[in-house]
Design a protein around this nucleic acid. Structure first.
Lengths: 205, 205, 205, 205
DNA sequence: AATGAATGAGTCTTCATTCAT
DNA sequence: CATGAATGAAGACTCATTCAT
């Protein structure tokens, strides 16, 4: 699953790949994967064509690299470590939602790339994305179940609900252009409240 | 705004374009716009390269054609005419949501294409998509405001909420693979109920 | 040597060809032969593609048609009939030069086309152009010889001189852009005088 | 103004471009710009399609390259450096005319290309050609004025006369086929004498 | 005589990837 | 490890010409 390389010096690999990721991210976010050429990445990263291919086997590899980087930045931005993930207390839900949406604003271009490319059949990214995605949904599902057992949430189908809420949280990224002239806090507040009311035990349905 | 053609016979244009749309839709849904070649569309549609370009000026034109077709199919599938659109009685909301999600299941590949390409900078489609999208959100916003005035809905920011609900309705399409082994009715029911509870006046927030 | 056609009705042929020539001339003058498409000629002439090819066998045929038309218009503009041609009284030389250059101004675009295409290897036009051209040179050569015998002209090589003078007369067309802001009469006068002095018996050489 | 390239090695660029110019010149001279394909240039130059486009951005670029090369060869063939150009002592006129026409014979195909393409609307070449052309005319105009002041030439309009003489000098190239069976020296002599007599102060006009 | 849709080889151009130095 | 020139298949698009109606 790891992106391979011929280069032995680990530190160099990590340094060069940072260059690649930084350059490629910007380009992919702006123009999309297909519309970005290796030459552009080469130029923007300061690596020659040959070097580029010393640290990466293909253009697809770069997408994987960028993809992983986005995930990682998202996670670290949330202040969660890899293990704990979203597996938190139901009581924290509002807090989590709030922080997640903040992230969505910050990383909206990146999230858009993720959604876009998740549908293209690029094998590698595809598989990895789905794996991580599945984990996220599972973690969130557990949280909902916990809340349900504790009587703080009312949930019909936990898996569907988890999936749904994760989509709602992505609203700021997915619908960026549409919401661009609405105050950020207003958006976050509206969505958060909507989710909480949707989970609330008070309404009869 | 109309896609132009060299061909004078209107009936033929509409017949050939149907061929083109059918062929291209399948390919675009499957492989994406960039990964589909004109030759593939030519082969799949049964038109020679030259003929293809008699009915369409560019590959982008085909995307516009497919895009309009998806919108149209979605609309007609909802059983709403263009005028009435989504501007219906608040009491019908559940009904509308249900039918919309049914459509999302049926047209999931198409909806995925719409989302994917809405982010690429292909001007023509881009502009048209955003225009229609804006109209949809506005219509739904009006519906929410009406419901709010009549005391049947509780809404914080109607525009954001409209945008949010329209995204939620698209869940079956956007998250197709994730929900593939969950019963369709279960998904629709869960989402519908979640939305209704989110709009409910009973919960205090 | 005649451009052929399948159509029997002679009057119709001549009418339709006039349409073709008018349309094609404009386009050829403006964009050049290679850059003009048959579709454009079809549109501009008001004939359908099929009809076009009923009155003409190929695009090259149209060039021949346009070419002949230019020659004809040039001749008739000079007020000379085909027989007499340029074989006139030496005393008239100044008059002829003047009128010819007037024509060059009027038909400059056409003359430019002639020069341009005379160098391309388009067989038909090529041959016809050279034939007519040869005749012109021969006629003018005779005129010079006559003048020489009568002692009014001094000429080293009559053939070369004829060729040279015919080129000089074309100055307004060949160098159109360069001379565009110089008074027409001034140009004509300068060239005419230069030629006459070049032929003059007074200068010792 | 310079034709750009992706290649960094300057020497290589200049070597490969020589290949391209050599190959393209031959083809352009023979068949014209429009009738020459990139594949032909590729084959004739010994460069693959990809390489070709590494040294040149477009087919038009090649025309510019060929054009500049022709100008350069013409200049260096005259034995004049760029500065001195045609701005020489009036007494040398006969000498200059003679050498120029020698060049015209040698480079007739190239000069024909220049005239041909000067009329096509290919912006790049167009502009450059006109610029250089203007300079030539200006230089020659100055020479005539000097001669006029010194009393060695009689000139009506110096600009027109300069333009005219430069056209006359091109006779061997423009009228190549027509003059092909006349002795080269005879042609040059006839034209030179004609020009000198045309400028002569002895004839009254 | 007229129509105009159909053909398909051909055009210019791009780009991911490799490999000799 | 680094360089960057070379490759060539593939891409979108054009257009003179034909022929069934």
């Amino acid at each position: 699953m790891e992106v391979q390389t011929n280069i032995k010096n680990k530190d160099l690999v990590s340094k060069r790949r940072k260059q690649i990721i930084t350059a490629a991210s910007k380009l992919f976010f702006e123009k999309g994967f297909d519309q970005t050429t290796m030459r552009e990445i080469s130029r923007a990263s300061g690596l020659t064509m040959g070097s580029l291919y010393d640290y990466v086997r293909s253009k697809d590899d770069i997408l994987v690299l960028v993809y992983k980087d986005v995930i990682e930045r998202f996670r670290s931005g949330l202040g969660l470590n890899e293990k704990a993930d979203l597996d938190v207390n139901p009581g924290n839900l509002e807090n989590i939602l709030h922080r997640s949406m903040k992230q969505m604003y910050k990383l909206s271009k990146a999230v858009q790339l993720l959604y876009r490319e998740s549908w293209s059949r690029r094998k590698n990214v595809h598989l990895q994305m789905r794996e991580i995605d599945r984990t996220n949904v599972e973690n969130f599902t557990r949280l909902l179940l916990k809340g349900q057992q504790e009587g703080s949430f009312q949930v019909i189908n936990p898996v569907v609900t988890a999936d749904l809420i994760l989509l709602m949280v992505a609203l700021p990224a997915i619908r960026e252009w549409s919401l661009s002239n609405i105050d950020q806090e207003e958006v976050i507040d509206t969505v958060t409240k909507f989710i909480l009311r949707g989970l609330s035990t008070e309404g009869r349905v």
